[in-house]
């Protein structure tokens, strides 16, 4: 099977970085058990670089993994789509990982595909789609607007993951100043307000009782597996308040009230910090519409207090050999809830 150009460049870059000892690990993707479901890979040896792949199913956000390398001072390389980059910037701004320990391998992302959606769109019969998806996966960018599968034209948008339909950041934030571009930057994306907030607006249009029923029904399903938190790249605390056994904010009982406490806590903590990567919903085994909650808050924050600032590294990457462990050369994260303006709107009298 042919190897696409991005994968080619990725492998070469990884090999060079590892061989020269510039980085200790390259975080990217490798083929998983099923085609169309590549999994995160942690490549530590140059000879393993050929395991790396890049294709249209590399949706998982890799930024979270850099937190595993907080201890230590070696560099790590990370393959970064727009949402990985946004999350990395947040993590750097939160002073959880210094920029100078990162080698950012940027990829322009036209939106990642969801295996199930592609199969549906192509009308693939059960059990017959592995080979077909492998074919799609082989190309980094299968056809700009669509591709042919199972003899049918499949539009790209039909196969996109929902979070990618809403995407406004196909490339890493400029302020992150990627070290290597593995592809051309992707063209800008301008989702419609309906795509961005249609589901939020639909809930807002309901009566408060209806909304209550909707969310109670949803939160009743929660298993409290914490997958949404564990996968979230902006949940970058060392210890989670929800695990605080001493204060016991969150009770141990798995009931609706505690589930609600859990999700309201998470919603307030990612409000304005969420990068929209949608990992929480993907990880949720019971299908909670979590990003609806987070998008509602991000939207309201922006409406109330103006655009939510992304943490932005300063001009130029921090000089090599900058103070160990310090986030030198990087601005501190701004969070809409830890700043204010004197003339903020006031609805309380």
């Amino acid at each position: 099977m042919t190897v696409n150009a991005v994968t080619e460049k990725l492998r070469q870059t990884a090999r060079d970085l590892l061989q020269s000892g510039q980085v200790g690990v390259v975080i990217g993707f490798e083929d998983g058990r099923f085609p169309g479901q590549p999994r995160p890979a942690f490549i530590r040896r140059a000879e393993d670089a050929d395991r790396l792949v890049w294709n249209a199913f590399c949706g998982a956000n890799l930024a979270k993994y850099v937190l595993d390398y907080r201890v230590g001072d070696g560099k790590i390389a990370v393959v970064a789509k727009g949402c990985d980059g946004a999350a990395l910037a947040r993590i750097i701004g939160d002073q959880q990982f210094p920029r100078q320990r990162l080698v950012v391998l940027a990829v322009g992302c036209p939106g990642m595909l969801d295996a199930g959606r592609v199969a549906d769109a192509a009308g693939l019969p059960d059990g017959a789609w592995d080979a077909a998806l492998a074919q799609v996966a082989a190309a980094a960018e299968p056809g700009a607007d669509g591709f042919e599968l199972n003899g049918k034209p499949v539009s790209r948008s039909a196969g996109l993951r929902p979070q990618c339909v809403r995407c406004r950041q196909p490339n890493v934030p400029a302020a992150l100043e990627p070290d290597v571009w593995l592809s051309e930057p992707a063209p800008e994306r301008h989702p419609s307000p309906d795509q961005l907030y249609g589901d939020v607006a639909a809930l807002e249009a309901m009566s408060v009782e209806e909304r209550g029923r909707f969310w109670e029904e949803a939160f009743s399903r929660c298993l409290r597996c914490f997958a949404c938190r564990n996968v979230c790249p902006v949940c970058d605390c060392r210890e989670c308040v929800l695990d605080d056994a001493q204060t016991r904010w969150l009770g141990k009982a798995v009931n609706l009230a505690e589930n609600q406490f859990f999700h309201l806590t998470r919603a307030m903590h990612v409000a304005g910090r969420c990068v929209g990567c949608g990992q929480c919903e993907e990880a949720c085994p019971v299908g909670l519409p979590l990003t609806v909650l987070y998008r509602k808050l991000s939207h309201d924050l922006e409406e109330l207090f103006g655009p939510v600032e992304m943490p932005a590294p300063q001009e130029g990457k921090a000089a090599a050999g900058a103070a160990e462990g310090a986030a030198a050369g990087l601005e501190k994260a701004e969070w809409a809830l830890t700043r204010f303006r004197l003339n903020d709107p006031d609805e309380f009298d």
Binding site: L203, E204, V208, E209, E210, R211, G212, R213, F214, W215, E216, Q260, L264, A267, M268, A271, L293, K296, L297, D300, L301, L304, F305, A336, L337, T338, R339, F340, R341, L342, D344, P345, D346, E347, F348
Partner: peptide, 23 residues
């Protein structure tokens, strides 16, 4: 400045409560 943060936090939080169905 404490209440300026209060204002921001609860302007948002009130919306969240209403969104999940608290009157």
């Amino acid at each position: 400045t404490g209440n300026y943060f209060t204002r921001r936090r609860f302007l948002l939080f009130r919306r969240l409560l209403e969104f999940i169905g608290v009157e």
